[in-house]
């Protein structure tokens, strides 16, 4: 893995179940998904950061109608999760019944996981902690 993070490697890390965030070299802000410049200080110097994998559920939806590529996977959750490091990511949400979304509580503790699909593609995911 190169020292200077790239979007291609960020996406590959997820496929390899090795999620890593970006981190601003100048101010230390942890950023994911990638940004070319730091939201905190504007610097464009980035490095890789390991994350704890701990997060909180910010919001979610359950997709029932999807483009062809995802149609077989419906219904599925997509969530916004705030990582303990402060940054927020979009991810699949596992471990909850997609037909009982009213039982999902915002603010719940979740932890990093990955979802494998039949096509071999992997999604960034979270499950109840």
């Amino acid at each position: 893995m190169s020292e200077k993070p790239t979007v291609e490697e960020y996406l590959k890390n997820i496929q390899d179940s090795q999620f890593k965030a970006y981190k601003c070299v100048d101010c230390g802000m942890v950023i994911a998904p990638p940004s070319g410049s730091c939201y905190g200080c504007g610097s464009s110097k980035m490095e890789w950061a390991n994350v704890s994998g701990k997060g909180k559920l910010v919001s979610f939806t359950v997709i029932h109608i999807a483009p062809d590529e995802f149609a077989e996977e419906t219904p599925y959750y997509i969530a916004i999760v705030e990582l303990a490091e402060g940054t927020r990511v979009s991810a699949r949400l596992l471990g909850y019944d997609p037909l009982k979304p009213e039982e999902v509580k915002l603010g719940s503790d979740v932890k990093l996981d990955y979802e494998d699909t039949e096509s071999g593609k992997k999604y960034l995911a979270f499950k109840p902690a």
Binding site: S59, F60, T61, V62, I63, I65, A66, P67, E69, F70, E73, Y76, I78, I80, S90, A91, R92, Y123, L124
Partner: peptide
């Protein structure tokens, strides 16, 4: 990852 437009607004809702 399969987030659709209705999904975007579902999250906002």
């Amino acid at each position: 990852m399969g987030l659709t437009f209705p999904g975007v607004f579902g999250i906002a809702a």
